[in-house]
């Protein structure tokens, strides 16, 4: 009974948040709605006894990624309600509708497939952890097995995928730094025609602008 109520509340929060992301005129409100969805998903993870995943969901997604979204929104100054209807691509609505329907079809197929795969079987996590008794999930000591099972599969079976993903992220970070780096200023800036006496005031504004860009990089 309690589980059903928890699921209903969390799922409602997820859906309301997801709809809010799409419908909000204000990008900051949309980001906050996204946080609500992520929290709902974290609660659903807890309901499935996946505490570690729930904590990571909150720390990584709600705590880091959406904060970075907000950073970008605030620094770009698009943080007030904007009219988004103009500037649409030709046939954008129809393409979006087609993609939406396709996505929904894939989702339904996925749910059906997973349902067929797991009906009556033990959950995958318990199987990898070597826990034979599926009913022992409520014992807190099992949870340690959960974390170590996750770590073991991440660093043995999926180690190449894991390392390649980190490599991809590093490449992305370096690319961002190189793209965002100011190269060869002075050619078109006010610096070239300034007398030497003004160089320090020019320096101060320069330092201020680099400070902002380095914040954006983080």
């Amino acid at each position: 009974m309690v589980e059903v109520v928890v699921f209903a509340v969390a799922a409602a929060a997820c859906l309301v948040g997801a709809i809010g992301v799409v419908l909000s005129r204000n990008p900051v409100h949309a980001a906050l709605m996204l946080v609500m969805t992520l929290f709902g998903i974290a609660v659903l993870f807890v309901a499935q006894q996946a505490h570690f995943i729930a904590a990571v969901q909150v720390i990584v997604y709600a705590g880091a990624i959406v904060v970075l979204f907000l950073f970008v929104i605030m620094l770009l100054g698009v943080d007030r309600a904007t009219e988004l209807s103009m500037g649409a691509l030709p046939a954008q609505r129809w393409t979006a509708a087609a993609f939406g329907l396709g996505g929904a079809a894939v989702l339904i197929w996925l749910v059906a497939a997973v349902d067929r795969l797991f009906k009556g079987a033990k959950s995958l996590a318990l199987e990898t952890a070597g826990v034979t008794d599926a009913g022992a999930g409520s014992d807190p000591t099992d949870y340690v097995a959960d974390v170590s099972a996750l770590a073991r599969s991440l660093f043995s079976d999926y180690v190449y995928a894991f390392e390649l993903t980190s490599l991809l992220l590093i490449v992305a970070v370096i690319g961002t730094v190189i793209l965002a780096r100011r190269s060869g200023y002075g050619a078109d800036g006010p610096r070239a025609d300034q007398p030497g006496a003004g160089q320090y005031s020019g320096n101060a504004s320069e330092a201020a602008s680099t400070g902002t860009s380095s914040e954006a990089g983080q």
Binding site: L32, A62, G63, V67
Partner: peptide
């Protein structure tokens, strides 16, 4: 069961309070 991770989760959510207040 996640114990100390709750502290990290809460301190990362607390950022929202400060950030949204300022914005």
């Amino acid at each position: 069961p996640v114990g100390i991770l709750l502290l990290l989760a809460m301190s990362s959510v607390a950022v929202y309070g400060v950030m949204l207040a300022g914005w």
